[in-house]
Design a protein around this nucleic acid. Structure first.
Lengths: 140, 140
DNA sequence: TTATCTGCAAATACTTTGCAGGTTT
DNA sequence: AAACCTGCAAAGTATTTGCAGATAA
């Protein structure tokens, strides 16, 4: 690539702080779509004085950068994911757990929309609703 | 503990209260995916003493009954819709407005999922992300 | 040096819940 | 009468923000 990493294009400069590195590391090590609370607890184990605000702010910075993927969950805390490629999610209606689903990502899905009332569609998310294996067993 | 309740099939009996009727009427008359706050304001115009808690509780009852459709929006208040048939939604990333999109509802979409880690899929929602016409004009 | 970042606390946004009294059936 | 419902206030959950001091570059 001819582009440089220092091409900030008008966005504010970002620093490399211990806290930010720890937040990124935590998201990478927690493979189960951690919430901000999960990340906070994980970072606290090695850096007890970090504040929730710092975790929230850094998750925001990292998501904007594309270093992590933010999964916005209806009626639940946002989840974070180490970004590989776009994919869809399923949420357990009993325990709230989020899992990735293996289904082709339809990048041209907007072409199926015949009328969005003038909306300029820029992205989409599909969230499946169901019951996870653990809750199936518990409820049976 | 059988035999105490008549024919309610396990669900609690529901009453017809003025508040519940007004909440349903408000959702039917507000055609723009009202939030609970919108419904609260609408009902208050004719019934000033209703409380937010009653509005929330009744929206829940009506959604469980299937009389209204609850649209759970990531990072925003839930929206309510008079139920016709399942459909998808788009959310403006600037102002948060929700609109219906005109796209075929894929009731068999779960057949496209090759692996959901044992999830029993029961439903799905697609939320498009974009910019509404008003915000396009305002931002241009 | 200085703009960014941090921790703390307070604030915000949305929703639920405990309680005591009122209403529907 | 019994079960359900209501209003109020308080609590709960998730996230953001103002501020003053700390720190990366």
């Amino acid at each position: 690539m001819a582009g440089t990493v220092s091409d900030k294009q008008g966005s504010a400069a970002t620093r490399n702080t211990i806290q930010r590195a720890l937040v990124l590391e935590a998201v990478r090590s927690l493979h189960d779509h951690p919430t901000s609370a999960d990340v906070y607890e994980a970072v606290r184990r090695t850096y007890p004085n970090i504040s929730r605000a710092t975790v929230y702010r850094n998750l925001g910075v990292l998501a904007n950068r594309g270093d992590v993927l933010r999964v916005e969950v209806p009626n639940g805390a946002d989840r974070y994911d180490f970004f590989n490629e776009p994919h869809y999610h399923a949420k357990c209606r009993v325990c709230g757990r989020i899992v990735d689903v293996d289904m082709p990502y339809e990048s041209d899905i907007a072409s199926k929309v015949s009328d969005a009332h003038g909306f300029a569609i820029e992205g989409h998310e599909i969230i499946f609703d169901g019951v996870c294996p653990a809750c199936q067993k518990a409820g049976a």
